[in-house]
């Protein structure tokens, strides 16, 4: 007589492993599909030519330029601020009510839907900050109060703030408490402890946060849908107050709004492949760095 529990155990193991394997197979299938369909159109010309008028030919150069520009500006905003906030949370604040409140705001910020960041960007950055700058410089027509690269980058910067904060916090937690105490015993001020002892060891975390936020920012489309992304601009000017094209948005436009969806399908797959290479590349580098940092802690 076989024990009933053995059968249940086997069944349980089979079912759970089946579901896990389903996800693995599906993810591999997705990546494989994009690779197979996207590779043959992915030529040097595709990366270095602007798209043609009806978007059924040409390359994606201005789109890549716009994406890179936005991601750079975004990290200029989110990395310093994220680092400062993480330093405040872990090094300066006493673990009281202020700490709890700030911590729960960080968690809430990480959970806010990305489309809401777009609304925030439109309401605050474009309307209030842009309008305020126009008023300040005395412009009659709208100069700053436009949907443009600058405000899109700031919106994206706010969106990726929690990622930076969490990455730096992880790194800060790995600095041994004894080192901070030793610094204080030498007569360092708190700022000198941060500057000379904590910060040099947290550099890896800052870099991880940068890489992960770039990966996240390059993949998000919803927050910039109405904060400056443009349908079609063949020549990217590179100016802060201009509209721009974006990789994810370009894919969305091609897949849903182009006049001939079936004909542009190879272009869509190639655009997806470029987007995946950008996000997956940065994401895997970031995860590797995080894993390496954790290993350092275990030793």
């Amino acid at each position: 007589m076989i024990d009933k529990r053995i059968i249940i155990e086997r069944l349980f193991s089979l079912v759970t492993s089946f579901f896990a394997m389903c996800v693995v197979v599906l993810t591999t299938f997705i990546i494989g599909l994009v690779l197979i369909n996207g590779l043959d159109k992915l030529t040097w010309d595709f990366l270095t030519l602007p798209p043609t008028g009806t978007m059924d030919g040409g390359g994606i150069l201005p789109i890549i330029e716009g994406t890179v520009m936005l991601v750079l500006l975004m990290s200029l905003i989110s990395v310093p601020f994220g680092t400062a906030i993480a330093l405040y949370l872990n090094e300066v604040s006493s673990k009281g009510a202020v700490y709890n409140y700030t911590m729960s705001s960080v968690r809430t910020l990480a959970a806010v839907p990305s489309i809401v960041y777009g609304l925030f960007g439109l309401a605050f950055f474009v309307n209030i900050m842009g309008g305020g700058l126009d008023f300040l410089f005395g412009y009659e027509e709208r100069v700053f109060r436009e949907r443009c690269l600058l405000w899109a980058a700031m919106t994206m910067g706010v969106l990726t703030l929690p990622i930076n904060i969490i990455a730096v916090t992880e790194a800060l937690k790995m600095v041994p408490q004894e080192q901070r105490h030793a610094g204080l015993c030498f007569g360092y001020t708190s700022w000198e402890v941060i500057k000379w002892i904590v910060f040099p060891q947290a550099k890896g975390g800052i870099l991880t946060g940068l890489v992960l936020s770039v990966s996240r920012g390059a993949g998000e489309v919803a927050p910039i849908l109405f904060v400056g992304v443009a349908y079609f601009i063949p020549n990217f000017s590179g100016e802060l107050l201009d509209q721009f094209m974006y990789l994810g948005y370009h894919l969305y436009v091609l897949a849903t709004q182009s006049p001939n969806v079936d004909e542009t399908l190879p272009i869509q797959y190639s655009t997806t492949l470029v987007l995946l290479m950008l996000t997956f590349g940065f994401n895997s580098v970031g995860q590797y760095m995080r894993w390496k940092n954790r290993k350092k802690l275990q030793r």
């Binding site: 997705i30 996240r216 993949g219 969305y252 897949a255 997956f280 994401n283 995860q287």
Partner: peptide
């Protein structure tokens, strides 16, 4: 693989 899936842009999932 799960971490890769977490980093997958949603627009790619929508497209596929």
């Amino acid at each position: 693989v799960f971490e890769l899936l977490a980093g997958m842009p949603t627009v790619v999932l929508g497209f596929l």
